[in-house]
Design a protein around this nucleic acid. Structure first.
Lengths: 136, 136
DNA sequence: AATATAAATGAAAACCTTTCTCATTTACAC
DNA sequence: GTGTAAATGAGAAAGGTTTTCATTTATATT
């Protein structure tokens, strides 16, 4: 029942929003660009404009329903927010994305922010590399 | 004697390259976007095209003279390469950038990449927050 | 159930940073 | 000095994202 999530987020329940949420929840890939979502909608037979996809994703981000990753190379990808913070490993060959959490790193980051007098609001850590499959 | 640095890097010694290097070395801000460099050149009375600034910065990056930081929000900033790897703390209010190194984090990153079967090529860590000055 | 109103949408244009094209100029090797 | 490959400038193009504005839609109100 996606409508509930939308309502809870203070967003009107509209077809584009329902469909985008559906895509994100049922997609085989957890990380999708706006373009990916747009194409998935088309395949689903929904004629929703790309501008609307961008708007909806941005609103979802504001509402805490998704997070935006600003990958190197310009375009952003989105993932459903599940409450668990994590960082990312990106394959520079196949663009596959893996997630990881490391409490030691988290802790060190907090310590560094404190040390420098920063009130930390966020952080982003990307490890770039060649994944197992692409090393052959 | 910037010409030496350029020659060593295998780059022809041209006015745009000398001037861009001069800007980077003498700038009050260590982190500059292509646009920043371009404007500084104009103020200096040098009529160097923006496209050239981009080209020169990209070549400098290739030559190891500067590093490119891909800050969230689209545009890149460059810093003179001094051989020391480091990560960055960014103030979300005033955009000031501080640098830090943490060997524990570096180590954990290597360990995580290895664990996931990734051959690490690079990594980027940004801590976002409000700096001491902006907290008042 | 009908209506009013503010919000959401679609399509296309605008934006912004960065890259490319191509004719012209320049640095450097000979 | 001269030739040649490389570098430059100006503007066009690219690519992802946002904005504009007229039209449609969801929801609160009668």
């Amino acid at each position: 029942m996606e409508s509930q999530d939308l309502r809870k987020a203070g967003l009107k329940v509209t077809l584009p929003r329902i469909k985008v949420l559906e895509i994100l929840e049922s997609a085989q890939q957890r990380h999708m660009s706006a373009e990916d979502v747009y194409k998935a909608l088309l395949e689903m037979g929904e004629e929703i404009g790309l501008a609307t996809v961008y708007r909806v994703l941005t609103q979802f981000e504001g509402a805490g329903l998704v997070s935006r990753l600003s990958i190197e190379g310009g375009h952003a990808v989105f993932e459903l927010e599940d409450g668990s913070h994590h960082d990312h490993l990106l394959c520079v060959r196949c663009n596959q994305i893996e997630e990881f959490i490391d409490e030691v790193i988290e802790q060190r980051q907090r310590a560094i922010a404190a040390e420098k007098g920063f009130q930390m609001t966020d952080h982003s850590l990307y490890i770039y590399g060649i994944c197992r499959n692409c090393q052959s």
